[in-house]
Design a protein around this nucleic acid. Sequence first.
DNA 1: AAGTGGTCTAGACCACGTA
DNA 2: ACGTGGTCTAGACCACTTC
Lengths: 275, 275
Amino acid sequence: MYEQVARVSDDVGMSPAPLYRQIADTMRSDITAGRFPPGSKLPSERELIDRFGAARGTVRAGLNVLITEGLITPAQGRGYQVQQHEVFTLDASRHENLLFSRPEDGDSFSNDVRHAGRAPHQEFRVEVTEASAEAAQRLQIEDGGRIVLRYCRRFVDDTPWSIQATQYPQWLVSENPRLSDPGDVVEGTTRYLADRGVKQVAFHDEWATRMPTPDEARELQIGPGIPVLVWVRTGYTSEKRPVRRTVTIFRGDLNRVTYDLGDTDALPTEEVNAA
Amino acid sequence: MYEQVARVSDDVGMSPAPLYRQIADTMRSDITAGRFPPGSKLPSERELIDRFGAARGTVRAGLNVLITEGLITPAQGRGYQVQQHEVFTLDASRHENLLFSRPEDGDSFSNDVRHAGRAPHQEFRVEVTEASAEAAQRLQIEDGGRIVLRYCRRFVDDTPWSIQATQYPQWLVSENPRLSDPGDVVEGTTRYLADRGVKQVAFHDEWATRMPTPDEARELQIGPGIPVLVWVRTGYTSEKRPVRRTVTIFRGDLNRVTYDLGDTDALPTEEVNAA
DNA sequence: AAGTGGTCTAGACCACGTA
DNA sequence: ACGTGGTCTAGACCACTTC
């Protein structure tokens, strides 16, 4: 019983797109055309089975395409919902930069988030481990030397936002013990260090993107189809000494980053950030 | 006939992970443990059916998890292959920056790629269109004003690398006609403009990540599970005048970006970039 | 020709969410 | 209780690649 619905092909002579792709394409354009606005619900699988005359597996294959594109999210018992993003912009060229922050400010994250009218919240954890070969090289300490790992998971309005792990060389923590507090350093660790004479005057930033590992997906509560942004910042003192290395994993759907370069006087004062 | 193989559960009393997830988890740890090194082939679906005692659909569901994680790629008739990346690093704080490039250099892309011992290659296309509301605002021209769109698709060793679209206001192109050449501007458009008195002294960069649209996936030849990096650079002259806006879409699996901030004298001269 | 993945069907039972 | 998605089976034919 392999009765086949007539399929639409883009070009005469071309083999038609497989049914599940046609379903994906149809639903995608329905979404992008606004027939299913962000936050709305798609028709149920059973309805789509009727509409497309396909088996359930085929309909699910089509919807799966849209899931991996990050367009929709399924929820058991509740149907498929069109994704809605609210994007938060991080100004990396000013973030944590002592030239731009004032002494009375708190840490950069809480600052930025509160400035956007949202409620920040953080969880901390501290560990002492042996440096990996790469970490040792980056922090310019001997192989297998001790480093202090300061973990931080951040939330905005109770939505998991990013996970962060900062590596400090042991010598720095010995001289600046609050770094190993499992709680918050209210003024921000960068400022705390600066107040004690360890000023970071230069940063090296690295950015990459990839799909989350299962662990990251769980911690950030993201489903398939949402990539993460990976940010690695190394901070240096004026003596060319690296004092910390911070790895941050951001939800890719909720975050954007900006840098201003060159003669900043030539830039408009307030960037207007459209979606 | 719903004979079920006994399933492993993480915790007593926990409901066991679904079979397809167990398959994904097993294969994932086989890959990350190096039992299937990058570039090698996984066992065929039929073999996995025997090994896990599952139906073909279940095995495929498990492999599909790894595909959307970007770990493996399927190829009809050839089996599943473990992904292998070769990452290219773009130094965005120096890229196109006139302070760092010498007059005899070519365009930044070809430069950087050749410097890495690879073979660059580019395709160009030019269009004239009406500015969208957002483009008009960013380029500070009147709504509906004309802009010139300069498209460029870039390859490294014949692998599609990035697609780029630069918007120039019409007035700029009239004064600098080579911008509308459908071919290459060998010295780079930024230098060409600078030589004619239009110096970009400041840049505003925006970075984001997301899954590719179907068009982008086709142009960049990427399958599911590979995100893209989106880069928007706006260039300004010393008169606070925006002269161009460049949108670049990178394959996320092949690219990384770096920025150096602050007192660059405090940074190590040569960053060692480990994977 | 043989083997591999790609697509599709038809039907089953389970788990979750809402009412 | 009912509807929704989640998981799974068993088997079919097709298209591509390799030998």
